[in-house]
Design a binder for these strands. Sequence first.
DNA 1: TATTGTTATACTCTATAACTATA
DNA 2: TATAGTTATAGAGTATAACAATA
Lengths: 156, 156
Amino acid sequence: MDSSTDAVARELLDVIPVIMRTIRSEMRSHRSNELTVPLFRSLMFLEQQPGVSLQELAGHLGLTSPSVCKIVDGLVAHSMVKRQHSNTDRRKITLALTPEGQNVLDEARTNTQARLADRLASLSAEQCEIVFQAMKIIQPLFRPAGDKIPAGEIKI
Amino acid sequence: MDSSTDAVARELLDVIPVIMRTIRSEMRSHRSNELTVPLFRSLMFLEQQPGVSLQELAGHLGLTSPSVCKIVDGLVAHSMVKRQHSNTDRRKITLALTPEGQNVLDEARTNTQARLADRLASLSAEQCEIVFQAMKIIQPLFRPAGDKIPAGEIKI
DNA sequence: TATTGTTATACTCTATAACTATA
DNA sequence: TATAGTTATAGAGTATAACAATA
């Protein structure tokens, strides 16, 4: 069993960086949406969890507060995100997508997903299913600390 | 079938960046080997393909020549890689691991793999197998252009 | 003239440290 | 005093453009 997890670890180390580079470059190559991976992930998280604080977003992204503060600055400057002071604790901020942010997210997701799907086109239904299941299996193991499971997914 | 590849694409977009961040941070957190992901991948490639040129390495990494030139500078400065002029075409260079580079690679691979394997420890044998197969399925779809399949793997 | 590698320069992403405002 | 967020500054990592040497 140990040798098996080692083999999987070796494969992950081999394959993940290559996929990541593709995702990055495909996200960049689409001219209309100048989203980087962290910006894209921020918008996705705010769609799932509207009203979160900066620290909650930082926890999800696995980045420090200053880094996320700058990311949010950019998103606010481009009118994709609304930043407000919390009513209950005025030190905190609450973050949410604007309608424009939702549009940008929808477009970016559609485009990037379509390009990834193109690469997967040669897979059989069985192979697709294996990859799909693998992602579902791996995801919880790498979830950043402090990242809550969205309420809609608790179902177990 | 289309909805299936779309679903897989969505999962990849969700999960890959998170795994990538973990790989990065685990690689950095181990103090003795200060290898970044691209440095690590360079060493791995030179182990498989000793004697390659800078452009071949750049093709494998999916980076531009100037970027790879700087990476190689660093590896040479740290005595991990030997850089020589080619005899047949003196514009070209040939790159190869030094014994020290091999040691650094071995240690980094062992450590990083072990940490990843720790995260996978809770998986059942079946789950391991699914993830393993998924990586094998995905890998060829995302191989960078100009990246040759290592001679030892042609076997088919 | 085209190709291989290098140097010069700049931009993005991220981090640590220091600061402000609120609790 | 502790916490949430911000600002200031610095260090990777990458790219494009310009250059040198060789073919």
